[in-house]
């Protein structure tokens, strides 16, 4: 199914079975003024990325370092996607590595809905108004 888009084509893709089945995460993102698409697997993500030109991928990753492969995949498809990692277990150095190697943001789980909403909105606004 093609990804829904706003007038600029920006979309939020929520990736990972644990994330899409978490009602708090879904409700936090659904309240934002950009279309939200739930994507359970990375193969579904590749399909979604082909139909939406830009936006944020909010991905549940067990280890931020593992999420770097996802970031490389995103860069290979398009440079216009920002990756925000939601991770249940991480240390400082793993988080720093993730950000050094290109993740836009990293949020520890369990998430606080307000924090998630603000960080994703900030990322989307940075895409809409690049400096």
């Amino acid at each position: 199914m093609p990804a829904p888009q706003d007038e600029n084509g920006f979309t939020i893709l929520l990736l990972g079975q644990e994330a899409v089945s978490d009602p708090r995460i879904c409700s936090a993102l659904a309240g934002l003024p950009w279309p939200l698409q739930l994507v359970e697997s990375e193969s579904d993500l590749r399909i979604a990325l082909r139909t939406a030109p830009a936006g944020c991928v909010v991905a549940h990753v067990e280890d931020p370092r593992a999420g770097l492969r996802l970031h490389a995949d995103l860069r290979a498809i398009s440079g216009d996607w920002l990756l925000i990692m939601l991770t249940p277990r991480t240390g400082i150095q793993a988080a720093v590595s993730a950000l050094k190697f290109g993740a836009h943001d990293l949020i520890e789980m369990p998430i606080v809905e307000r924090v998630l909403r603000e960080r994703v909105a900030s990322a989307m606004r940075s895409l809409e108004n690049p400096q």
């Binding site: 991480t90 240390g91 400082i92 988080a95 720093v96 950000l99 050094k100 943001d105 990293l106 949020i107 520890e108």
Partner: peptide
């Protein structure tokens, strides 16, 4: 972690 993320 939040401090490190903020700094980066």
């Amino acid at each position: 972690v939040p401090m490190a993320v903020d700094a980066m």
